[in-house]
Structure formats: C-alpha cells, structure tokens
Design a protein around this nucleic acid. Sequence first.
DNA 1: TTTAAAACCTATCAAATCTGTAGACTAAAC
DNA 2: GTTTAGTCTACAGATTTGATAGGTTTTAAA
Lengths: 153, 153
Amino acid sequence: MISKKTKYGLKALIYLARQYEQGPILIADLARDENIPKKFLEAILLALKNSGILQSRKGKGGGYYLGRSPRLITMGQAIRVMEGPLAPVPCVSETAYAKCTECGNENTCGIRLVMKDVRDAIAQILDNTTLADVLNRVDHAELSEKNVIDFCI
Amino acid sequence: MISKKTKYGLKALIYLARQYEQGPILIADLARDENIPKKFLEAILLALKNSGILQSRKGKGGGYYLGRSPRLITMGQAIRVMEGPLAPVPCVSETAYAKCTECGNENTCGIRLVMKDVRDAIAQILDNTTLADVLNRVDHAELSEKNVIDFCI
DNA sequence: TTTAAAACCTATCAAATCTGTAGACTAAAC
DNA sequence: GTTTAGTCTACAGATTTGATAGGTTTTAAA
C-alpha cells in the first residue's frame, strides 16, 4: 500500500500537469483544491523539486510548476521520490540495490526469484506511464462516464 | 517493500514445502535453520494456520506442516495473510476493497486507473506462482550455479 | 526602499506500525 | 502425571507516518 504522502504527491503532480505552462501554482491553492494539509504538502513538493521533477519561484507571483513536459515525467520517477524503490525487496531494486540480510545466496533465493518478476512488472507499468498518459486516461474516463449519464437521461 | 514478517513467513513456507508429507516440523528447528526469532515466528505460523495454509499438532511429535500440497499454495495467498492486500491502493483491491477517502470519483481517478494495472500485474504473478513452482525455480537456479562452478574448475 | 507574498527550513509531536520478548496456558503423547 | 510443543496475552522499544507551529529567505511590486 502506498502512503498518503505518495497519494498527495501524485495528486499534486496531476494537478500541476493539467496547468502546464500556465505559470506557477500556489501551494495554498493546490492544498485547498485537493484537500491536502498545506504544511505536509510543502514538504512533499520540496522533495519533488529537489529531485528535479518540479521547479519553483519564491516571492510574489511565485509558486510551483513542472520542471519539464508531462510527457517526460513518469509515475515511476515520482513514486520513487516519495515512496522509495518500486522493488518489493531491496535485493532486486535497479535504482536502489541493497543486499538482503535474510537470504544467503542471492542467485538461488526463492523469494528473490519471484520478487524480481514482480519488480519488473511494476516498473514496466510505472516507468512507461507519464503524467500526460494519466491526464489522457482521466479525460477518456470522464468522457465515457458523461456518456453513461447522457444515456440514462 | 515487504516486511520482515512476510519474508520470515515465506521462508518458513518454502522450508515446510521442501519437507511436505514428512511429518510435523518443530518451530524451534525452523527458527534455528532459517535464522528467525522463535517467538516472532510463532505468531507468523499461527496466522498462517488460522488462514488454512498451515496445520499443526500439539504435544510430543507435534509441529507445523502444510495444510495442502505445495502445488495448491500460491505466493499471493501467503503474502496476503502476512502483508495484507496486494493492491497499492485499497480501492483497487479484489480481496479487501475499501473506498479511498482521497479520490472523489473512483471511475475517473487517475491514480486509481494506473494502480489498477499495477495490482493486476502483481496478482497475475503472485496468484499463479505456487510453492512448488518456487522450489522448482530454486532447484534449477542451484543446478545452474553448480554448473558455473564446475565450469570454472 | 519598504512591504507584502510565497517558498523554504527547523523543530516537534502524536499515532500507528513493526519487530521482538516474556510468561502463563492448553493439548497431546508416553 | 510428566514432558513436549503449540497457543494465547501482554508488553515494550524502535521506526515510520502524518501532521503542526513558527521563523527565515527570496522576490516582486507599491
């Protein structure tokens, strides 16, 4: 299960992706619109900025905005910033490998063999889904839901 | 990342699968052989028993053993007992659905759309990998590692 | 050049979860 | 009826999570 922090961060990124190239967005506005505790959100956005995904401007007229096109920001990149590695066990992580103290021989550890497949499946999806993809899917979903309503009327 | 509890539990299951139909195994032996704190392991095995995956016998000659064939126990079943649902967000869980307080409309939530795919990919693997499969893969891995060593000699 | 706005930083805190331990209780075998 | 071995209850320390408070720095505009 992903943490609230990660959910908040993803919601913020999607929100910012919708307004890409429309100038900086205030933390306060984002927090209000998405129902996220403002101070908590501050820390999350800061982490996303330090990782290069977001940029910011201080002072009047300032705020946060995407550091690059929504088509160049993947869910995998974002989730790793907030949640840590995608891998279920550290010994199969591509981005943050660490030896498992539990399993003796890595090459023949049954848990590792299976978890390697799981990691690859997760990464396959999240590293190939961009913020732009998410916006697209949401738009389509909203459209088809609207059609269902129209159909009912 | 899966917890130590889950790793311990999986190691115990693999250990028991290796000795399927060879009588009950003592918690103490299992704990010693796999380097798991005995009291912690007790609680884990009990949970696995209450879920029907394991069975036990008390008293002299007692111990734990698989409740059914290793070919009928999947990694998904075991992990759900110890770690909870496979789904990254509760609103896409098939076995433990719960509404997400964060997303307003479930049908059009971008996070949910992506996480549904992730859940399905994880479940696809873990619900189709049995303990018998794991033993097989480990055996093959050990064999090919042995061959590498032989080749070096 | 002051002033207001807004991000940035530090510290702290309560609650929950994770990991592990201690000791008494119950059931089965001999 | 004594030994064996799983079962139950309680607890405790460590870590993580989610959230708050208050001050500092940068920037734009009055």
